[in-house]
């Protein structure tokens, strides 16, 4: 048994996640039914060679700290760019138009914010975006940013393939439809459909008319990583913005689960965080139990994946066997012209 409180908690996160997302995910899958026209099996994917490259961009703090999107835009990268919902607007603002945008979180208010929420003024107060290290200057004036983001997403939506899990809230579906995105659906696993005693996922597949399932790794960023090799078939996959943690010196208040951890552990809240010494950076970052769980899963998946995985985040906690921790520039120099 781990004797670090944060790691103890991390052992429970898998079950907590199922408790948290299953009912709402299934509810959303029913509500989204009128939009099920195409699935990830309908994507037209060219046959890739062994060096076909993709960059998966998610929204960790290094994304803005290292100016990742602008650097990608400058190099005329010819492979696929896959973003998660949270990094989508950031990429657009810096001139990177991704081929694919992956979304899966069922939250009814927060996720639509990544696309510009037309009903923001009437939403409950929420400091989630302002509090965290998401390109903070830009989030200072939330109403103005929301308007700018709405216009940007509307301008570029028709160029984007939205890879939507059936669990997304209908507000997200509506924004994707309104902005002209081409939507391809998938189901997440809630249990193991190959196990005859487990029925939730098989019933969901029936409910959605046979939409295939894709594993997620617990969060949208890992789902986008899985999508890059398991569906698109890329064999050289770079990860950007995959900090899975917080930079040295980041106040606990600015971490994603701070309020929840404080409510649970009060003055012992600091013990719930986990320090990780990154030998590539010679820096000690820290993470929380949820991100620590995500980290463990990615390390497991990287062993299983048929691709070579490069972590080009240039920060964070994700390193280990089967993860090549290199700079973004090195990846772009080596594979930048190895498109489709």
């Amino acid at each position: 048994m781990e004797n670090n409180l944060g790691k103890q908690i991390a052992q429970f996160v898998s079950k907590l996640t199922a408790d948290k997302v299953t009912a709402v995910g299934l509810r959303n899958a029913k509500l989204n039914r009128p939009h099920y026209r195409k699935t990830i099996d309908d994507l037209l994917i060219p046959k890739h060679g062994p060096d076909s490259a993709a960059i998966v961009v998610v929204g960790g703090p290094s994304l803005h700290r290292k100016h990742t999107a602008a650097r990608i835009a400058q190099t005329n990268f010819t492979g696929d760019i896959i973003t998660a919902d949270g990094s989508f607007g950031y990429c657009l603002r810096h001139g990177v138009i991704p081929q694919y945008m992956v979304c899966l979180d069922p939250n009814p208010y927060r996720i639509v914010r990544w696309f510009g929420d037309p009903d923001l003024a009437s939403r409950p107060p929420d400091d989630y975006f302002r509090r965290q290290d998401f390109d903070p200057k830009y989030w200072e004036d939330e109403m103005r940013y929301n308007q700018e983001l709405t216009e940007l997403v509307n301008q570029h939506g028709s160029k984007i393939k939205a890879i939507l899990c059936t669990s997304v809230d209908p507000t997200v579906t509506k924004r994707c439809v309104e902005s002209g995105m081409d939507i391809y659906w998938w189901n997440q696993f809630y249990d193991d459909p190959d196990d005859p005693t487990q029925t939730v996922t098989r019933e969901l597949v029936g409910l959605t008319g046979g939409i295939p399932c894709m594993n997620t790794g617990g969060n949208v960023g890992t789902a986008a990583y899985i999508f890059s090799w398991a569906v698109l078939g890329h064999r050289q996959v770079a990860l950007a913005g995959f900090d899975l943690g917080y930079a040295p010196g980041t106040p606990f208040l600015n971490t994603q689960y701070f309020y929840e951890l404080r409510d649970l552990f009060g003055e012992r809240v600091a013990e719930a965080y986990i320090e990780i010494q990154n030998p590539y950076l010679n820096e000690t970052w820290y993470t929380d139990p949820t991100y620590y769980w995500f980290r463990e899963i990615i390390l497991e998946l990287a062993k299983q994946a048929p691709c070579t995985t490069y972590n080009c985040t240039e920060g964070g906690t994700l390193f280990g066997a089967n993860i090549n921790f290199i700079s973004l520039s090195e990846f772009l120099n080596k594979f930048g012209q190895n498109g489709g």
Binding site: S14, T17, G25, Q188, D191, G217, L264, T290, F294
Partner: peptide, 13 residues
């Protein structure tokens, strides 16, 4: 107390 808050955004099987 934490099920609603601390979990990820999707299951992992």
């Amino acid at each position: 107390a934490a099920a609603r808050a601390l979990g990820g955004s999707a299951c992992y099987i």
